[in-house]
Write a protein that binds this DNA or RNA. Structure first.
Lengths: 102, 102
DNA sequence: TCGACAGGCAAGTCACCACTTGCATAACTC
DNA sequence: GAGTTATGCAAGTGGTGACTTGCCTGTCGA
């Protein structure tokens, strides 16, 4: 999944995730309002909508339609890819290779 | 740290991290060779060098100069930012808000 | 049924990012 | 000291991504 890292690359999209964690199940309009209020983001509705598309493609946001409303939920499961791929422990002071070479 | 997410956004940079985890403490030339061999990446030396700059700025790579060589080590510590910021558990089936509204 | 509301679609613009190109610097070898 | 090796710097280019603009679809309430 390449889309996960692309989705996380944009600060507005990360703020959207923050917002959804804080208040899960928001609609597009609700998100726009709260992003302006709490995060100082003044993106247009269309911009936020396109961000949500990417987040949904990455699996970080799950949606459900109900009448004319579309609700958005945060899903942290794809983030496991990151911790599975690389060790998260600090290997800064663990320079075995060079030390053994010298 | 905005640079962490930017650094992870590029597939070549992610491959560099993979390579460093596999064999820590490589030089620039060593990395170029192994990226071609094992990852099918044919970027130029300069391209890889610029990627390494970004990775170092993000704290994901730590370097040390020794004569005319510069060694590169992977550092997974910045990745903790991601898991600290968002819950990694699956909240897909945890739609409290909507259910309580209806 | 009509108007307002929530959201979607698609083409166009602009800026940034990855990559190249060419040269420069510094260290090791002989 | 001269040539080679490893890396750094900096300007230029092309393509992608974020955002806009304008219009369209579908749903709810009166």
């Amino acid at each position: 999944m390449d889309e996960l890292y692309r989705a996380l690359a944009d600060p507005t999209r990360r703020a959207i995730l923050d917002e959804l964690v804080d208040r899960n199940g928001q609609t597009l309009f609700e998100l726009c309002g709260r992003l302006i209020m709490k995060h100082g983001i003044e993106s247009s509705r269309q911009a936020i909508s396109q961000h949500l598309e990417l987040l949904e493609a990455a699996g970080l946001v799950v949606t459900e339609r109900d009448g004319r409303y579309k609700f958005h939920w945060f899903n942290g499961e794809p983030l496991h890819q990151i911790t599975k791929r690389w060790p998260t422990k600090n290997s800064k002071h663990n320079k075995q290779r060079k030390r053994s070479d010298t």
